[in-house]
């Protein structure tokens, strides 16, 4: 679920509010997105993929994590490279090669083509 909105990194572009398919965000009074409906989050990572500032972190758990969790430790997420890692992997962002162009996976059967998704 969405667990972190970094106030330090957010550029208040409203993109996450716009793209979330289950509408979990609202715009806060200071312009930053607020997670108003976390229980509606479907853990699809789309907000992270679409955040141009790498300001969001979605934990893989489909239930909320406690306050002391790693998912709320911004410094830890930055240090370990987890913040912004999905965007990096799919090659979204300035100067990156789209991951789709590099997506040559293994073939699941000897005669089959490589998986590319």
């Amino acid at each position: 679920m969405i667990e972190l909105v970094s106030a330090a990194q957010c550029i208040a572009c409203d993109k996450c509010i716009e793209v979330c398919p289950t509408n979990v965000f609202d715009r806060g009074e200071d312009g930053l997105p607020v997670v108003s409906r976390q229980s509606d989050c479907q853990t699809c990572f789309q907000c992270e993929a679409n955040c141009p500032a790498d300001a969001l972190f979605v934990a893989p758990h489909t239930h909320p994590l406690p306050a002391e969790s790693y998912a709320h430790d911004e410094e830890h997420l930055r240090r370990t490279g987890l913040l912004g890692s999905y965007r990096r992997e799919i090659g979204w962002g300035h100067g990156r090669t789209p991951g789709a162009a590099r997506a040559v996976g293994p073939a699941l059967s000897p005669a089959g083509p490589p998986l590319i998704s």
């Binding site: 789709a100 997506a103 040559v104 998704s117």
Partner: peptide
């Protein structure tokens, strides 16, 4: 202009789609 990958032998591969990109 979906950026399909190319296989090791140079053939274009079009048997799958990355969801966010598609």
């Amino acid at each position: 202009r979906y950026p399909f990958p190319t296989g090791p032998d140079g053939t274009p591969l079009r048997n799958g789609l990355q969801g966010p990109e598609y």
